[in-house]
Every structure is written in structure tokens, then in C-alpha cells.
């Protein structure tokens, strides 16, 4: 199980993956918005999305858990 965390304080702009999706390393899971930029959160390794823990529009702090990969 790999934790996917926010690298910065941001709001959740878009969610590109859902639980059960198979993803490759480098695939965008979620797009965060911070300081007028859209910053993709990428899968660090290939796997299956176990859960997405945030909703669109939600504010997250640096280090917040966004998703889990299995």
C-alpha cells in the first residue's frame, strides 16, 4: 500500500482516478490548485487505486493523505 500525499497546501481542483483504476507510474490521479496553478498529483509507482480520500473543492494541507495505491 502506498500513500499519496499533497506536496503543498492546495484545493482539490479535479479528480482523475477512482477506486479500482489500474494506474502506471506517472499517471495523474488528482489535480490540485495552488496559487493559480494546476498541479497534477502523480502515481509514484504502478498499481491499483485503493481509495481516493478527498473531494473536489476540498482544501488540503501539505502532507495530507489524498489517496492510497495498492
Amino acid at each position: 500500500m502506498t500513500d499519496v500525499r499533497a506536496e503543498m497546501s492546495a484545493s482539490v481542483f479535479r479528480i482523475d482516478a477512482s477506486a479500482g483504476d489500474e494506474v502506471a507510474a506517472g499517471d495523474a490521479l488528482i489535480v490540485l490548485e495552488s496559487m493559480k496553478m494546476e498541479i497534477p498529483v502523480l502515481a509514484g509507482s504502478a498499481g491499483v487505486v485503493k481509495e481516493i480520500l478527498v473531494k473536489q473543492g476540498e482544501i488540503v494541507e501539505e502532507g495530507a493523505l489524498l489517496a492510497r495505491l495498492g
Binding site: 506536496e7 503543498m8 497546501s9 496559487m35 496553478m37 498541479i39 502523480l42 501539505e62
Partner: peptide, 8 residues
């Protein structure tokens, strides 16, 4: 920029 936009 993938790690944020401002100086923390």
C-alpha cells in the same frame, strides 16, 4: 512546480 508554487 510539481511540489508547489510558493516558498514555504
Amino acid at each position: 512546480p510539481y511540489k508547489g508554487a510558493t516558498m514555504t
